[in-house]
């Protein structure tokens, strides 16, 4: 067992974990953060995407011990003060999900994408989501949702609301 201390969705947590435990398993099984899901075993599908120190990672491809000291944000931690994250809002508005299993990872990766490039083109959105698989939507409305969120965010920023 190895002692780890990290911040998950804003809360400090301390645990003893087996070194082999994957970050996603730690989130789900020990912290009950079941919003983050496991879709594959080869880091292909991106369903488990979370933010680790501000960058998107596939949490099935990171050991919990590697996240020691880090700040982790999951789909359960991106809404603020009861208000949805603009991407959560956009995914619903644009019908960017059907079964919803890929959605947490898709939203977390989209958030990373917009953080690096607030005004992406369609091609940039598609490339930015190349590591996330969805079997339901054909991606069309996901791409639309990311643009919608980008537009909504820039409208807010341009309006000086922030």
């Amino acid at each position: 067992m190895t002692r780890i201390e990290l911040t998950v969705d804003g809360a400090k947590v301390v645990d003893d974990v087996e070194p082999r435990l994957l970050l996603v398993q730690y989130l789900r099984e020990q912290l009950g953060k079941t919003g983050t899901v496991i879709g594959c075993d080869t880091a292909s599908c991106g369903a488990c995407t979370v933010h680790l120190d501000g960058h998107s990672v596939k949490s099935c491809n990171v050991l919990a011990v590697q996240a020691d000291g880090a700040e982790v944000t999951t789909i359960e931690g991106i809404a603020t003060n009861g208000e949805l994250h603009p991407l959560q809002e956009a995914f619903r508005e644009c019908h960017a999900l059907q079964c919803g299993f890929c959605t947490p990872g898709m939203i977390m990766q989209s958030a990373d994408l917009l953080a690096e490039n607030p005004h992406p083109t369609e091609a940039q959105i598609r490339e930015g989501l190349e590591g996330n698989l969805c079997r339901c939507t054909g991606y069309q409305n996901i791409v639309r949702a990311v643009r919608y969120a980008a537009d909504a965010t820039s409208a807010t920023t341009d309006g000086g609301a922030a």
């Binding site: 491809n61 990373d112 994408l113 930015g128 190349e130 590591g131």
Partner: peptide, 9 residues
């Protein structure tokens, strides 16, 4: 290389 998540790690 890989995808954005892989390039972060």
């Amino acid at each position: 290389v890989g995808d954005p998540q892989v390039r972060h790690r």
